[in-house]
Write a protein that binds this DNA or RNA. Sequence first.
DNA 1: TAGATTGTTAATCGATTAACAATC
DNA 2: TAGATTGTTAATCGATTAACAATC
Lengths: 216, 216
Amino acid sequence: MKDSEKNVPSVVVKRLPRYYRYLSELLNQGVKRISSNALSDKMNVTASQIRQDFNYFGGFGQQGYGYNVEYLHGAIGDILGLNDGDTMVIVGAGNLGKALASHDTFEKRGFKLVGIFDNNPDVIGTVINGKEVMDVSGLEDFIGRERVDIGVITVPHGAVEETVERLVKSGVKGLLNFSYMELKLGKDVAVENVHLSDPLMTLSYKIKENKQESKR
Amino acid sequence: MKDSEKNVPSVVVKRLPRYYRYLSELLNQGVKRISSNALSDKMNVTASQIRQDFNYFGGFGQQGYGYNVEYLHGAIGDILGLNDGDTMVIVGAGNLGKALASHDTFEKRGFKLVGIFDNNPDVIGTVINGKEVMDVSGLEDFIGRERVDIGVITVPHGAVEETVERLVKSGVKGLLNFSYMELKLGKDVAVENVHLSDPLMTLSYKIKENKQESKR
DNA sequence: TAGATTGTTAATCGATTAACAATC
DNA sequence: TAGATTGTTAATCGATTAACAATC
């Protein structure tokens, strides 16, 4: 069994984007090499965990030297599939859809926004970040023709179910779901659910905890 | 030591918003009671974990009956501090700031948006979701006067540091940070960092994994 | 009461950390 | 070579699951 086929715990996978971000920053700063210890300080994780994590994918470092930042950055990008040129469409050109369409980090991470869709005649035809909003009635055709990989769901609550169905039927391979509804699908279509109010609630908990602590 | 003062593992805290969302939905559907087993089916977690989690805060159920949905919903809301009437300001009225300002889920969860700030003269004075965008130069005054609890950071990269400093100095108790930069602060100010591209990267990984699997 | 289901303890599992031999 | 730091195994810690007595 190749290293890349070992089953990687999902806690590790969820840490990869974070590593990737920090390495991007180091790369920007022109840092050439970094040790697990130095990275550990920066990221507030243990050096041991860093080495352990990387070794799920088979060691990118060199004894006595550390890790080459550029190489490691590229390797993690590959593992994450950021160099696969995944294309995506945004369905729902409301405020959130618009914001995501204009969010340049997506492009910087190697994703290509190829279409924005809405069902509102007033919105169809308007231009967001240089792209014309298309009529959602043409969604299936477009996805099939352009072989779109990812569907980003930013439609209102009531339209989620239908949107998901249509995206999946058209053959997208993954859904990034910003709707209130939590999606579970068959394992042939990957899903990530994003709930913007979750971190706000967690923050609220922490604030409350801080208050209680200071009272003691 | 009271139950509420036990130190709750952060994995448990991070699950609370999810419980809260599912309970909101059940409440909407008019469901009166639910057992850990039934909830377990719905949420794809074990019943054991649900009971274990709730018991960190001291048991909300009743043997032989299960949990009263309304009561449990309220209790978790209390734990999360959603009934504390936390106020918030959004700093940065760009696309993301606008989207968040219009995101009604925040209000539904008990948070009160009291101000939106920007430094761009073209944006100052415009109205977002019924609220006029204010000049960021008045940020400190406003926060002090209105005793704002939470600062939501949606400014561009270059303005993050200054924004954080000003928010903290003015006395906010928590930051919800959407900027690229990952914040760490002293423990008197709570922070949640949100990185919108992280779930997209994780999704990309899953898609890639699916592809490899189907090849085998 | 009998049945159901919690609260909670004990067992298991997995993830993190520590340690160190391998090696650049 | 000597020093540094990885890759990797072993030890520890914590979280999840299982089990069941308590009890509504």
